[in-house]
C-alpha cells in the first residue's frame, strides 16, 4: 500500500507545471524515504530530477517500493481539477495498475477522487555523480525567468559567464546582442532577493534558451534558484520545494559553432 497526503496540495500542482512541458511521461519511484522522479526530455538533452521527502507529507506510507509510470498530460488534467487550497492524497495498492488522487477541500465539504491508469515505462535511470561545481550562483527565481525570457528574443542560445565580479548572461542574433550583468549583492533586506556567487574558477558555458525557459516553469515553487556550473559539464538549475524537497534540471552545454 502506498499513500502520500500533502496538505499543501498546490505544491503538487506547481510541480506538475514545472515538468509537463519538458516530459511526456515519467516514473514516480515511491519508497520508504519518499518519492523520486528522474526523466530525460524527448531529445535527451536535459534531465529532470525531483525529490519529495516523506517528512514533507503529513501522512506517508509506502509498504514496498513502487514504480508508477504516469502519463504527465493525463496527470496534469487530473491535478487541474484540484483547487489550490485542496489537500491532495496519492494512493495505490501494491502491484496496482492504477493510482488514485483524492482532493479534499480545507473544510472537508467536498471530496473528489480520480483514478488514473498507470503505464509501463522503460526508462533509463542515469547515475548523477556528486560534483563540486566551479561556480554556484544563487539569484531570485523571478529574475532568472525574466533574463531567460528577455534574452530568448535575441537568439537560440544564452551564454552564462561567471567571474568573481558576478554573472553575465548574453545572447546574440540577427537583431543584435544583449548582455545582462548581475553583481553579487552586498546587503539585502530579504535573503530571497540576494544574488550570491561562489566561484572557485571562472566558467563560461552556452545553453539552449528553449530548455532554460522550460526550467523556469518551476519559478512558482521557490523564490530563489541555484545555478551550478563547471567547465564542459551539464548546468544544474535547482529550485527548492519548501521543506519537502527539490527539483533539479540538468542541461548539456552547447559546443562548437
Amino acid at each position: 500500500m502506498f499513500e502520500a497526503r500533502l496538505v499543501q496540495g498546490a505544491l503538487l500542482k506547481k510541480v506538475m507545471e514545472a515538468i509537463k512541458e519538458l516530459l511526456n511521461e515519467a516514473s514516480f519511484d515511491c519508497a520508504h524515504s519518499g518519492i523520486l522522479l528522474q526523466a530525460m526530455d524527448n531529445s535527451h538533452v536535459s534531465l529532470v530530477s525531483l525529490n519529495l521527502r516523506r517528512e514533507g507529507f503529513d501522512k506517508y506510507r509506502c509498504d514496498r517500493n513502487l514504480v508508477m509510470g504516469m502519463n504527465l498530460s493525463s496527470m496534469s488534467k487530473i491535478l487541474k481539477c484540484a483547487s489550490n487550497d485542496d489537500i491532495i492524497t496519492m494512493k495505490a495498492q501494491d502491484n496496482a495498475d492504477t493510482v488514485t488522487f483524492v482532493f479534499e477541500s480545507p473544510k472537508q465539504e467536498k471530496i473528489s477522487d480520480y483514478e488514473m491508469k498507470l503505464t509501463n515505462l522503460d526508462q533509463d535511470h542515469l547515475g548523477i555523480p556528486e560534483t563540486e561545481y566551479s561556480c554556484v550562483i544563487k539569484l531570485p527565481s523571478a529574475e532568472f525567468a525574466r533574463i531567460c525570457r528577455d534574452l530568448s528574443q535575441f537568439g537560440e542560445s544564452i551564454v552564462i559567464s561567471c567571474t568573481k565580479e558576478g554573472v553575465k548572461f548574453s545572447a546574440a542574433g540577427d537583431i543584435g546582442t544583449a548582455n545582462i550583468k548581475l553583481a553579487q549583492t552586498a546587503t539585502v533586506d530579504k535573503e530571497e532577493d540576494a544574488v550570491m556567487v561562489d566561484m572557485q574558477e571562472p566558467v563560461t558555458l552556452t545553453f539552449a534558451c528553449k530548455y532554460l525557459n522550460m526550467f523556469t516553469k518551476a519559478t512558482p515553487l521557490s523564490p530563489q534558484v541555484c545555478l551550478s556550473m563547471s567547465p564542459d559539464v551539464p548546468l544544474v538549475v535547482e529550485y527548492k520545494i519548501e521543506d519537502i524537497g527539490h527539483i533539479r534540471y540538468y542541461l548539456a552545454p552547447r559546443i562548437g559553432d
Binding site: 530525460m40 538533452v45 542515469l126 539552449a208 548539456a252 559546443i255
Partner: peptide, 13 residues
C-alpha cells in the same frame, strides 16, 4: 551549435 546527449555525461546506472 551542437549539443551532446545528457547520457554522455551521466551514464545509465
Amino acid at each position: 551549435m551542437a549539443q551532446k546527449s545528457i547520457k554522455v555525461y551521466f551514464k545509465p546506472s
